[in-house]
Design a protein around this nucleic acid. Sequence first.
DNA 1: TGCAGCTCGGGCAAATTTCCCGAGCCGGAT
DNA 2: ATCCGGCTCGGGAAATTTGCCCGAGCTGCA
Lengths: 217, 217
Amino acid sequence: MSEVAATGISVLLVDDHPIVRQGYRRVLESQGDLHVVAEADNAAEAYGAFKAHDPDVVVLDISMPGASGLEAIRNIRARSPRARILVFTMHNEAVLVKAAFGAGASGFVTKSSEPSAVVHAIRSVARGERAMSDDIAHVLAADSLSPTGSVLDQLGEREIEILRQFAGGATTEQIATHLNLSVKTVQNYHYLIKSKTGARTDAQLVRLAATCGLTRI
Amino acid sequence: MSEVAATGISVLLVDDHPIVRQGYRRVLESQGDLHVVAEADNAAEAYGAFKAHDPDVVVLDISMPGASGLEAIRNIRARSPRARILVFTMHNEAVLVKAAFGAGASGFVTKSSEPSAVVHAIRSVARGERAMSDDIAHVLAADSLSPTGSVLDQLGEREIEILRQFAGGATTEQIATHLNLSVKTVQNYHYLIKSKTGARTDAQLVRLAATCGLTRI
DNA sequence: TGCAGCTCGGGCAAATTTCCCGAGCCGGAT
DNA sequence: ATCCGGCTCGGGAAATTTGCCCGAGCTGCA
């Protein structure tokens, strides 16, 4: 329970829901060795808070579709490669998990995990180890056994993100705003995704996204 | 701050994420007058826990869309009409909100609300009042400016048929051909269906059709 | 008889989609 | 060092669709 220095582990909490954040804080701080030194409620703030507090571990909830979560991971790691980032989200799609690790995350834990598993993961990544919850391990394992060139493999990160939000019901303008892009660019991606996947209709696109686990219905 | 009996308010927490649940518990219990008497992590358990503990307020996270959250609300209310249920979720679609209230919820609060707004809402519903967070009020207000009604019941035969084919991935021309209609008419139906259901996007339409069992994915 | 609602389509301005294009960036191959 | 290819980002312009209004014929119902 205390493989860590007497000073404990400092944590930066990133989540866009205030009350959720406050809940995590209480759970983590009740552990004794975990100290939440800062909170942030979006990717931009996350980077600022990281620079300001240099925490041992960043617990990052990219709950909203990947959004700029991957970007935040890259930004933080670009600044300090020793940063330990634990992604903590309700999503469990293999694409997302691989993207997160690819971006430099040290761990990936779903919210369906037991609290004890989460704090254990935090301690693990603080020690420099890689960590993931059991369900994520299963998802990755299953995924690695299927040589199925999923349709999603032909799509870039941006394209997947936009497809996810679109399939989730978001408007073109909403997506543009969320991702800070021009409406025109989102429209172009929309078209590009359709031609890449061969979908002739928005409805087909949604079904595609659903069958690929990009969105649930 | 204490319009409630000295015994305080007993709460049943329902959320499918253990750590989130534990976080809420801590936030609520730090209030003094709120006591979490039980937790559940799915709709079925929620009903059992309600029967066993008869809490003043059920705080229910129907995180998955449609899902069985509404069913849980109905079950609980069928058993005890005086039950107070506060829906607490990250979703803010008007359809969902109306469905929740229609099923018997007393309040609807999004996770982007301040923690204080959440505990305030709990106290409100405990007093028998209706409660909702500001963002939900805005969504409902905007929505109510075009009286939509429930959902599929307001659609005519033709409309349902066209929605089914559309959600199945059919092109406007294909639908027109299949039904022997002019493209223009199909377009008009498309538009009509959107305005009737309140869907702003084709993707939302597909999701709607799917949750209504009109199409499989 | 008259109202109400579904079905079917026309019209037309506004918005979006569809393609095609170039530019910057980066990583990998030569 | 250089080129190539892919991703990202947007402009432009024609084609299409949307959004919203309209009228007409049909039904069932009061």
